[in-house]
């Protein structure tokens, strides 16, 4: 490890990558059994499992870097220590996954499609130049990105080009996602150092690629914001707190070493 600064920046970036996948996998797992179609339920669940698997790979690298056990990082860390983008923690709709869910498939398709595309661009950048053990992980993860992207792109394009009702629901969802999507492309306060240390290319470069890719599929206005703040700096909504309480309910219930 080159320096303390390098180590800190690397750890920061790893939390961003890990927490993004972990939290979105959670949101995906809430859909289990509730998707618009049984066959899709099965396909979607595979993607959620993949995301959680990717998160696990990053967490084990954090574990190696002395950050603590992966299970503890996911089940025993305070919300303000999470580095995921806020758009990924927002609920799937109203209600909960147990009581009166009124989940929005349009929002889910848009959020997942945009995130998958941004994630692929991010991983491609890390593959070029970064911390070597991270590059190994990213190469493994990249294998699964083709399917994820094809899956969400198919849903996105089909719903965008079907009935007027679907189109209008999708446009509402796009607006909602873009209001906070800047947060996915942000590296937070340590961003400049992360880029200077060649852990990943600049936010602006990746954003440009993201917009260019998406414009090829649908000519939509892609101006984006961080309406709810920058999750990379530990700012989060109450939804993250609620989610983490659910995710760690059993783990926290009994002090045990084995589960």
């Amino acid at each position: 490890m080159e320096s303390i600064e390098y180590r800190n920046c690397l750890i920061e970036l790893l939390y961003q990558l890990a927490d993004d996948d972990f939290i979105l996998a959670y949101r995906g797992s809430e859909w289990l059994g509730l998707a618009p179609h049984i066959e899709e339920d099965v396909a979607f669940s595979s993607i959620s499992q993949d995301l959680m698997g990717h998160a696990t790979l990053y967490y084990s690298l954090l574990e190696e870097l002395g950050e603590g056990k992966a299970d503890s990082l996911t089940h025993n860390r305070r919300p303000e220590k999470f580095r995921n983008a806020i758009i990924l923690e927002l609920p799937n709709g109203t209600g909960t996954y147990l009581v009166n869910p009124d989940f929005d498939w349009g929002f889910t398709v848009v959020r997942n499609y945009f995130y998958t595309l941004a994630k692929k661009i991010r991983l491609d950048s890390i593959k070029k130049e970064s911390y070597e053990p991270l590059q190994h992980i990213v190469k493994k993860i990249s294998v699964e990105m083709t399917y994820h992207l094809m899956h969400w792109e198919t849903w996105f394009i089909q719903l965008m080009n079907s009935t007027p009702e679907a189109r209008s629901r999708m446009e509402t969802a796009i607006k909602l996602v873009l209001e906070d999507f800047e947060g996915v492309l942000s590296y937070g306060d340590l961003g400049d150092q992360i880029v200077t240390l060649s852990l990943i290319e600049s936010e602006a470069t990746l954003k440009q690629r993201f917009i260019a890719e998406l414009q090829k599929k649908e000519p939509i206005d892609l101006s984006m914001k961080m309406k709810n703040g920058d999750g990379r700096n530990g700012t989060h909504t109450k939804h993250l707190t609620t989610s983490l309480a659910i995710l760690s309910e059993v783990y926290q219930s009994i002090p045990a070493t084995e589960w």
Binding site: M52, D71, S243, W259
Partner: peptide, 13 residues
């Protein structure tokens, strides 16, 4: 979502 470890979460999913 409540499964107590990452491995249990993946397996039950």
């Amino acid at each position: 979502p409540k499964a107590p470890t990452l491995h249990r979460k993946l397996a039950i999913m």
